[in-house]
Design a protein around this nucleic acid. Sequence first.
DNA 1: GGTTGACTTCAAGCCGGCTTGAACTCGTAT
DNA 2: ATACGAGTTCAAGCCGGCTTGAAGTCAACC
Lengths: 144, 144
Amino acid sequence: MTAAVLSIGEVAARSGLATSAIRYYEELGLVEPVARQSGRRLFAESAANRMRAITAAREAGFSLDEIRRLLDSQVEGTEVWRELVEVKITQLSTRIERLQAVETLLRDSLTCGCRAWDDCPILLGACQPAPATASRDATGQDCA
Amino acid sequence: MTAAVLSIGEVAARSGLATSAIRYYEELGLVEPVARQSGRRLFAESAANRMRAITAAREAGFSLDEIRRLLDSQVEGTEVWRELVEVKITQLSTRIERLQAVETLLRDSLTCGCRAWDDCPILLGACQPAPATASRDATGQDCA
DNA sequence: GGTTGACTTCAAGCCGGCTTGAACTCGTAT
DNA sequence: ATACGAGTTCAAGCCGGCTTGAAGTCAACC
C-alpha cells in the first residue's frame, strides 16, 4: 500500500532530486504540494513523475523557465506543449549536429601531424580563417 | 602588409571574442601578450589563432581550466595534449549519444497520444520507474 | 591644446540552478 | 522529558564565464 500523498523526502527519493531542488522548483512554480500538514508539504504521487519529467526536459535543454511555460501550457487545456517540444527538438538536433561536427574536428586534429593543438591547420581551417583586413562578407559562420 | 603584432582590439576582431574575454583569458593564463607598449598589450598574430582554437575547445566541452592544462601540456614539449583530446572526444561522444536518446524520447512523446507531457508514459517509462518501496538494486541509470 | 578613441585597472555584477547554514517547529520513540 | 530526525523559512553563497562601470592613460589628429 503506497501512500496517497508523499512527503518532500519521498518525492526526492523517487525522483532523484534533492529536497532543496524541489523547494526551489516550487518557488518557481513548477510544482505545488496538494496540501500542508503542520507546515510540511504533502505532494501527490504524480509530483514524483513531474519531477522526473522535468529532469528529462532539462537534459533536452529546456531551462526551468521554459519548463514552467511548458507546464502552464498544459494547464490551459490546449496542446501548445507539443509545439514547444517540437521547437526544442529542432534546437536539440541542431545542437547535436554541431557537437558531431566538433567531434569530427577533434578526431581529425589528432590524426593531423601538427605539433601543437592550437596551431593545427585542420582545427583552424574549420574556424573562420581570419579575414585580416579584408572585407567581411558575412560568410563568417563561427567555428565548427 | 599585416602587422607583426596585434592590439587587443585586432585580436578580438580576428577571433570574434570580446576584448574583456581576452583579458580574462590572459588572467587565467590562456594567452600572454608578447609585449606591452605604454601599458597596452601587444599580441603575436598566433594569439588570434589560439583564441579561435580556444573557442572550438569550449564548444567541445572543455572548461577554461582544462584548456589551460591543454596548453600547458603543449609547452612542455610532450604530446600529452593528444591524450587530453582523446579523453574529451570520448566524453563528447557519450554526451552526443545521451542527447540523441533524449531527442528520440521527445519525438516519441509527441507521437504518443498522451494528454499531458509530464504524464506521458513513454517519457516516464524511459526514466527510472520509481522503485516505490522496493529494493533499489543499482539498475538506476538516470533518465534518458 | 583640446578632443577623440582605444586602451588600461580594479571591483563588482549577472546568469541559471541550485546548495548551504542558521535558527526554528514538529511528531514520534525511548 | 527529552532527544532525534525530518521537516520548515530566509538569506546568503557558489560555480563558470564573462560583462559592466568608473576612473585614468596615451597617441594622434585638428
